[in-house]
Each structure stands twice: as structure tokens, then as C-alpha cells.
Design a binder for these strands. Structure first.
Lengths: 194, 194, 194, 194
DNA sequence: TCTTAACCGAGACGGTACGTCGCGTCTTTTG
DNA sequence: CAAAAGACGCGACGTACCGTCTCGGTTAAGA
């Protein structure tokens, strides 16, 4: 019997180069922000050739997206304690993450997805999917906690708007942290009105 | 009596070229978004020389800022009607503006001010000032309306976070409009908890 | 046997673009003089991109140097006839070349190499080397002829100074041609004193 | 009787600004070479306005010419000693001056006058006149000395070509100083052949 | 002495060229 | 045949000077 490969098996070099690219991109992103994630910089830092990079990421934007995804850890929903407490802890965690530098950049950058500029159809689609995916990732813990806090039909989007929206406002508009008392008031007001 | 000039008289060419630049920039911004506001495009469209443009706007960023400011009309605070009505109308107006394409872009763009990237001290300062100015412009109508709605000490920032934050969330994260019933619930919840 | 490439084979595009650049530069140089050899002009005339040009010639000066080199044919040392005749013919040829427009410009331009202006170390070195090379090119025919004319140790530099220096003086300072009788007197005087 | 001005009297401001310009230009020329003599640099250094400068020197070239002229002291013809000695001293002085940095630059620059480039008729004429003037300045001491050395009709141009040409050659082409023995050989060879 | 015209500084303006950076496509050669 | 290496055309950047121009303020000449 030959050493025939399993048909679904991929060329291992593909993974090697992809991860080299990604880790270089992530490092550059963490060090110098979005502006530093240049095709040139990534290739020269990762030792990967230009053409190889383009094989993996048709656009610099997609590379950036992947790097951001790598950099944004999902939140773990608090699982024990009173409902009000669990919600508060989740909101605090979300606030903390939003205020971190990479999240801030990612937030803004993702918010910018699909605003004017004219990327082609395909890219727009892929990016929209990425956005969806990230949003889902962050909605999930709220789903979990709210399902336990609220009886019946929890309108998660509305809840998220009321709970996370103000955090966004503080971070993006007022440029001030959302401290514990702020989050507590948010949560209590929210719970008081259903 | 002599035909003495007013001392403060400036070279009229300054105004001529500045407005030519700005109107070209605004047009490009409206047509093609931030990406279209190129130094090259602005100069060639306005007929103004490169060096002249740089004399007026040391950085492309500042040009963009000025163009955005030109494009973002301030909101008029509703002056008559019941307090709850006035507040609702203001929130609706704010929602409508946020959802407009230029505001959306401006919002994201201003949110990005000061994130990584390394503009020099001077520019960072000017941009921060611009941000402040724009934020103030939009806070003002809330000041006016809230002063009438709430007796005592209205914490305008907290109020704005609770009222506008969710609009931001809808626009930037969920990409859905904030309809009338959404805004009404926001306002009513807000008023119910002082 | 495989169709293996010769190992030293280079990307043919390199040669293509280099020669396109050079021929454009030479044409411009011949038509409009040094002042016409602009990066912009060369790129637009040769259809070569700016960045490509800079890849081949890090400095406009080096481009100019190459163009001049292309434009200056070396002199062939006369090989037959009496020594005095051979020397005279060489001097006449040298005079004729010096008086030609391109040589004149090249002469002045090379004389200017390394005078004030502050190019970086690397470029200065390359230009000095170029100067050496050109000087050698023109010294060589004198070496050949003088070796035959003079027994023993011909001090070629001194000879060249005495034979070519006056040609330079006529061309650069007096702006008059060095005619046959002038050259003949030069040669005869030179031979009379060793 | 009034304090009537002499009719030919000029506005003293003209002289003031002209000399301010010139001294700035000379300083820049001495410090940074031809490249440093910029209209901008001269105006900002001299405190003279752009328009004033252009009133005095229609072209930056003419300004440069004037600066060079300021920088090149004429040679004094040696007046005592044996003819051979006087000639030798003159040649040595000429060699010394040629080798000085400013003279070198001036030499090259003046040699370049009228090579291609397309200044307008008027300027070309003025520059040619300047060249003539400078050449005359340097021919004069040779006239004086040769008149005493040689009986009959001294062909000064031919003499200068033979005596100064080799100095030029050393300075411009070989980039080596013309030392005393070199000059002595030049002079002796020259005198030996009339 | 008092205008008044010339001269002046300051600097805006439209240009041209520069040298750099990053992009996305491409070709060639190596493992 | 993927990958490295890197050339290529392109478009935009920000800078440096150019030569022309408009503006008020100052100052010297002449009425």
C-alpha cells in the first residue's frame, strides 16, 4: 500500500504560511495599530512572499479582519450568582473589553465596514459575514445570561442596545471609562423596566 | 477723513481658495466617501494648487475634519410641546441624523481619532479639539431640552449615554434603523427612572 | 536532457525597463540638455513607472551619469603613421569630441561631481567611481600612443595635462574651437621638450 | 539755497537691500555651495522680500553670478623679479585659486553657462557678458606679465591656454593639485618654445 | 513741511519636480 | 507545483522652490 494522502488532507505548507502571516499581522496590529498592518510589513516580517499572502487573503482588508478576530477574545458569560449580579458582571466585562486599545480599534474599524469606499461585491459580502460573526460572538453571552434573568421572550437586541449602547457612547463619544456605578445604574434601570 | 482700511482686513485670496478647497472636499466626501477625499482629487477638482491646499490644511486629516464639519448640520432643540414629546422628537432627530450616510461616516471617523496611528502632537491636539467641538455641538440641544424636562441637576452625559448610546449601537453594531417605537421606549424608560 | 535554464539568467524585465529608461534619458539629454533629463520626463517618455526607475537608478544623478556614458563614445587610438602624426590625430580627435555639445555638457557635469552639494556617502562613492571610469576611458588611447612615441617612462598624466588641458581651456574658458594649427603647435611643443 | 539732492542720487534703500541680498547669497554660497543659494534661503536669511529680490536680480542665475563675482578676488600680477620668476609666481597663484573650493565651483558653473537649458535671450546675453568680464579679469595679469616677458607680439590666449589649461586639467579631470614643480615645468617649457 | 510715490516685508498663489510608500499583478527560480 | 523573491505599473503622499501676484506699511523725494 502506498503512502497515499487522505483526499481531504491539505498541503501542510498552506497552514504554515497562513499562520506565519497571521501572527505577523497580529503582532503588527498590536504594536502599531491598523496603520502598521501593511502588506509589505507583513510579508517582510513573516518571511512569506507577497504572492503567497495574496493566495490566503485576497485583500489587505481581509487580512486585517482576520488579525482583529485573532485579537478579540470572546467573553465568557458569568454562570453563577443572582441574575442581577450575573448581568452586571457581564456588562462590566464588556465595558472593560471595549475600553482596551485593540477592541477600540477593532470596534471602529468594523463599524466602518461597508461605509462608502467601493470594494467589490465579493469582498463586501465576506466582510459583512465577518461582522455578523463577530457580533454574534458578542451577543451569545448576553443570550445566555438574559435567558436566565428574564422570563418569557427576551428581546436580546433591545437589551443589548440599552446595555451596551451606553458603553459605546462613553468609549467612542465621551472618551471616558464606564465605571462600576455607571454600569450598575444601567443594569438596574434595565431590570426595573422589565 | 482718509479712506483708511479696516485694520483686520485679510487677503481675500485666502478666503477664496479656502472655500474652493472645502467645497470640492465636501462634494467628494458626499459622492465617494472618505476614501474619495484625496489631496490629488481635491486639488484637481478645486483648481487650487497643491501647495495652497497644504497652506490651509497642514494635513489631509484636517481637511477631512473641516469637510465633515461642513456636512454635519447641528440639530435644533424642539422648543414647544410637553417635555416627553420634546425629548422624543430630539431623540428621533438624532437617530435620523446618525443613520444618514455622511453622519455615519463622520461618526466612525471621529471615533477613530486618536486611535494608534502616530500623528504628531500638534495635530493630535487640533483633532481632539475638533472632536470636543463636535460633541459639544450635539450635546447642546440635549442640554436645552433636559434642563426643561428634569428638575434639579440633570446629568446630561449620563442621559445622553442612555438615550444616544442605543442609537449608536443600532447604527454601528446591528446596522438597523432606530424606529419610532424604539425611541419611544428609550425615552419612556429614561423618564421613568428620573 | 532537460530544458534547464542557464543559472545566471536574470529576469528579462530588468533589462527591458532599464534600456527603456536609458534610451529615453539619452534622447532627452541630446534634445534638451541636462535640464531636460527630469525624472518625470523620463518616466512619461519611457512608459516606465516612477518606482521602477528608482529601482534602477537610486538618484537622478546616477541616471544622468548613465545617460552621459551612453552618449560619450571612447576614442580609438590611431595605430599607424609616424609617432608625431598619430599623436596629432589623437589630439585632434579629442578636441573634436570636447567641442561637441554632449561632451561639453558631460565634461562640465562631471567636473561638478563632488563639489559642495551634499549627496550621501554612497552616492558620492559611486559617482567618484564613475568619474574615474570615464577618465580612464579617455586616458587609455593616450597610454597607447604615448607608449609608442616616447621611449622610457612616459608620464601620461603630465602629458595629458599639457596636451588636453589647453583644449579644455579653449572650450570652457575661451569658447573657441581648437583648430588644426593650434593642436599642431601643442603637439610639437610637447615633443620638443621630451 | 536748498539742500537739493544731486540728480543722479539713488534711493539709498535700493543699495541697502541689494547688499543685504548679496551678502546673504555669498554666505550661503560659501557654506553650502551652489545648491544652497535658493531664492527662499536668500530672502529668509537677508530679511529681504521676495519681490525686492526679483527687482534686483530677475533670475536666480543672475543672483548666483553676482555672488560668485563677489567671491572671486582678481589676481595681482607680480611686478618685480626676473620674467621667468614673475610668470611662475602668477601661474602658482592661479593654480592656488583654481584649487580653492569657491573658485572650483565658480569655474564649473561658469563653464556651464550657455550649455543647452533654454534661458531667454536677454539672460543669455547678460550671462555671456558676465563670463567675458570674469575671463577678462583673469586675463589681465597675464597680459601684464607676458608683455614684459616676451618681446614682440605675445599671443596671450595661446599662452594662457598652454599655461592655465593644464591647471584646469589637473583640477577638473585628475582632481590633483598642481604643485610647484609641475608649474615650473609648465613655465619653462613655455618659455623654451617662445 | 507735507504729500505722494517708490520701495518694502510678508506671504498667498499656481506650478513643476521631487523622492517615498503602499498597493495588487506579474514573472522567474528554488525546494 | 507551492513558495520565495522581487520587478512592475500605478496612484497618492508631503516637501521644496520657483516666479508671479496682491496686500498694507514705511520712508525718502520733491512740491
Amino acid at each position: 500500500m502506498t503512502t497515499q494522502q487522505v483526499p481531504g488532507r491539505r498541503d501542510p505548507r498552506l497552514d504554515r504560511s497562513r499562520s506565519a502571516i497571521l501572527s505577523a499581522a497580529v503582532a503588527l496590529l498590536a504594536e502599531g495599530g491598523v496603520r502598521a498592518v501593511t502588506i509589505e510589513a507583513v510579508t517582510s516580517r513573516s518571511g512569506v512572499a507577497r504572492s503567497t499572502l495574496y493566495r490566503h487573503f485576497p485583500t489587505s482588508t481581509e487580512l486585517l479582519a482576520a488579525a482583529f478576530q485573532e485579537l478579540l477574545p470572546p467573553l465568557d458569560p458569568p454562570v453563577d450568582g443572582a441574575p442581577r449580579d450575573r448581568l452586571l458582571r457581564l456588562v462590566l466585562a464588556q465595558a472593560a473589553q471595549i475600553e482596551g486599545a485593540p477592541s477600540m480599534a477593532a470596534l471602529v474599524w468594523m463599524a466602518a465596514i461597508g461605509l462608502s469606499g467601493t470594494p467589490d461585491e465579493g469582498e463586501r459580502t465576506r466582510l459583512a459575514a465577518l461582522r455578523e460573526h463577530v457580533v454574534d460572538t458578542y451577543r451569545r453571552p448576553f443570550d445566555a445570561v438574559l435567558a436566565d434573568c428574564l422570563p418569557g421572550d427576551p428581546d436580546v437586541d433591545f437589551a443589548a442596545a440599552r446595555l451596551v449602547g451606553p458603553l459605546l457612547f462613553n468609549a467612542l463619544i465621551l472618551r471616558r471609562p464606564s465605571d462600576e456605578s455607571f454600569c450598575a445604574r444601567l443594569v438596574d434601570d434595565f431590570l426595573a423596566r422589565r
